[in-house]
Amino acid sequence: MAGRINPVVKAVLEWGPIAAFFLGYVKLKDESFTIAGTDYHGFIVVTAAFIPLMLLSTGLMWWLSGKLSKMQVATVVLVVIFGGLSVWLNDERFFKMKPTMIYLLFGGLLGIGLLRGQSWLKLVLEDAIPMQPEGWMILTRRVTAFFFALAVANEAIWRSMSTDVWVNFKTFGLPLAIFAFFMTQGGLFKRYGFEKP
């Protein structure tokens, strides 16, 4: 059934689990559940539900489109690892670390590419953003620095603020920051972009 996926379906599969996590957290954040003799805070229960939901949505994305980006695969693996640790050890800190690990991983990989004189970002986004090689190198340097900044921001927020603040930051702050970042790159796209033949 692989092929071009409907944009609405794609958006639902990408953002649905995040929205479900947020709504679940809002509903259960003050609840406590005893499972097999152990008390679990609502955050842990919602995290436990988020992991299979993320796996299901990613699996459906792969089934419908026939492909997954390396970024999607890495994100799902880190969700399973850090979400699983939070549930297993009944400690929400591991799941809060997940965005930090994701942005450090992506920033680190892009940084390795830059040290080799290559834009690995181009390999991921070339079809979406046709641009000259010089433009890709500039954008990659900016995205690398941005990812490291997001990692620092996530660490600062989850370590110094309440879980409510962190959940809002993860659900709304991070996507808005990424959107705003790419909106500010319009001059770069205009200068180095070109029309696909």
Results as ranks from 00 to 15, higher is better:
M1P: 12
N6G: 03
E14W: 02
W15E: 12
A19K: 06
L23N: 10
Y25I: 01
L28F: 15
E31G: 11
I35R: 11
G37K: 05
A48S: 09
F50R: 03
I51H: 03
L55M: 14
K67A: 13
L68W: 12
K70G: 15
M71Y: 12
M71R: 09
V77D: 00
V79S: 09
V80Q: 11
V80S: 12
I81E: 01
I81F: 04
L85F: 10
L85I: 05
W88K: 01
D91R: 08
F95Y: 15
T100L: 09
T100V: 13
Y103G: 03
L104D: 08
G111K: 11
I112T: 03
L125T: 10
E126S: 14
D127A: 14
A128K: 11
G135N: 04
T140G: 03
R141A: 10
F148V: 02
L150K: 01
V152I: 14
I157R: 04
W158N: 02
W158A: 03
S162I: 03
S162E: 04
T163R: 09
V167A: 05
T171C: 11
T171Y: 13
G173D: 00
G173E: 01
L174K: 04
L174H: 00
L176A: 15
A177R: 01
I178G: 08
I178Y: 10
G193T: 05
G193D: 02
